[in-house]
């Protein structure tokens, strides 16, 4: 990757913008990964980086419409994905195979996303400076 020479807009490098991908692969309530990952993304948004979020495998369940956690007494954090746009996080990607295996389609998701093939996902991942997985 040839990121070393470019991207600096001041001398000490504090203005460097890197490409961060947050890779979400866990279902929302069975473990704490999804919620923790979302909080990290929201905090990272304050640092003006180039952030994208990817939902693969069970991570696609995080975006399913119609979640209602009243009866399990846990916080329903699915509405927070709709706030990402206001945090200037507009690049949300979902892998098509992950949806299809789970009997889901783009219409089942609560935010607009770009659905990618595995090949397109490979290209997107290779293009990142940092990939952080949850």
């Amino acid at each position: 990757m040839s990121e070393a020479a470019g991207d600096f807009d001041d001398e000490d490098g504090s203005g460097t913008i890197k490409k961060f991908m947050f890779l979400n692969r866990k279902a929302p309530y069975g473990t704490v990964y999804a919620l923790e990952g979302l909080e990290v993304v929201l905090i990272t948004a304050a640092f003006d980086q180039d952030v994208s979020m990817v939902f693969m495998d069970d991570g696609v369940y995080q975006l399913v419409k119609g979640q209602n956690t009243k009866a399990i007494a846990m916080k329903n954090f699915s509405p927070t994905y709709r706030a990402l746009d206001g945090y200037d996080i507009e690049k949300l990607y979902v892998e098509r195979d992950s949806l299809e295996m789970r009997g889901l389609s783009e219409d089942d998701l609560l935010v607009p996303v770009e659905v990618l093939s595995s090949a397109e996902m490979q290209v997107l991942m290779s293009d990142q400076d940092v990939v952080i997985a949850f």
């Binding site: 929201l42 948004a45 304050a46 916080k75 329903n76 954090f77 509405p79 927070t80 709709r82 706030a83 206001g86 945090y87």
Partner: peptide, 15 residues
């Protein structure tokens, strides 16, 4: 109520 989070100040200002 809508998003289940309190916004960061930058986001609040913009909204």
């Amino acid at each position: 109520n809508e998003f289940q989070i309190a916004p960061a100040v930058r986001v609040l200002t913009k909204a």
